[in-house]
């Protein structure tokens, strides 16, 4: 397990839990990162509030990789603008592409996402596109230069879990890039299940931000993700199509 690394765009990580930083106080970030064991944290880019002197960056422990998203973008061009601004903010070259035209369900626009991936990969970004799990689009993202593919489990912020399980499994089986399940994972058990399926990592935000104890939930997710990964590497036992199979010897009974 010690040698089990997650590699994204040539960068190595040991943690397979990508932490969101939205919808909770920045003062809780340090504890959340610690209890999650996270090495990557997502951020958003917004118009600066000139009254605010505090920066969220002050609360993120050193050594944690920043993954700015392009939320708010409705087209590839807007996502590219946001990514370039994020890079100018001095966070490195990682970017999570998030393009939505639909404000009710917040579903990603796969076609625009492929276009933005192509542009930003050419500019040297480590591109991690958030997408609706579709094999053809995932292949297009590979060809466009994505460093990972981030399919949604269920709508953003819903905590509904692996609604798109079958389609994520197809991506895991067919795409030769880390498949990072993003959006909708609400419970540690769901994160664990995705990891057992062979997902490379889990991204969660709302599940923690809406939990009773954010830090304790971060720790629970960490354990679940590690357990799921271990189970995947161990190879799950088979499932019988019917009947039963005794675990005990079928000889030597007392009545023999």
């Amino acid at each position: 397990m010690d040698n089990d690394k997650l590699i994204i765009g040539g960068h190595e990580f040991h943690s397979r839990f990508i932490l969101g930083s939205g919808k909770y106080s920045m003062r809780l970030i340090e504890a959340a990162v610690r209890d999650a064991g996270a090495e990557i944290i997502t951020l958003a880019v917004r118009r600066a509030n000139t009254k605010q002197q505090e920066s969220i960056l002050d609360y993120i422990p050193e050594g944690v990789t920043l993954l700015p998203n392009t939320s708010g973008a409705r087209t590839a061009e807007e996502a590219v603008r946001i990514a370039r601004l994020a890079r100018e903010l001095g966070c490195g070259d990682f970017v999570k592409i998030e393009i939505m035209r639909d404000s009710k369900y917040l579903l990603p626009d796969n076609q625009e996402t492929v276009r933005a991936t192509e542009i930003l990969a050419k500019e040297g970004f480590v591109v991690m596109p958030y997408m609706y799990p579709d094999l053809n689009v995932a292949r297009d993202l590979v060809n466009a230069g994505a460093a990972a593919v981030m399919p949604l489990a269920s709508p953003i912020g819903s905590n509904k879990g692996l609604a798109s399980k079958e389609f994520i499994q197809i991506l895991i089986d067919e795409i030769d890039l880390p498949i990072i399940v993003d959006a909708g994972i609400g419970r540690p058990s769901q994160a664990c299940e995705a990891m057992e399926m062979g997902a490379a990592a889990i991204m969660a935000n709302t599940a923690l931000a809406t939990a009773g104890d954010l830090s304790m939930m971060a720790s629970a997710f960490r354990q679940a993700i590690e357990a799921g990964r271990k189970a995947y590497l161990a190879g799950l036992g088979r499932v019988l199509t019917r009947g039963a199979s005794a675990s005990d010897p079928l000889t030597g009974f007392l009545h023999d």
Binding site: G20, S21, L43, L89, C91
Partner: peptide
């Protein structure tokens, strides 16, 4: 002109 900074986000 746009002036932007980082905020919390997923």
């Amino acid at each position: 002109v746009e002036v932007v900074s980082f905020v919390g986000g997923g």
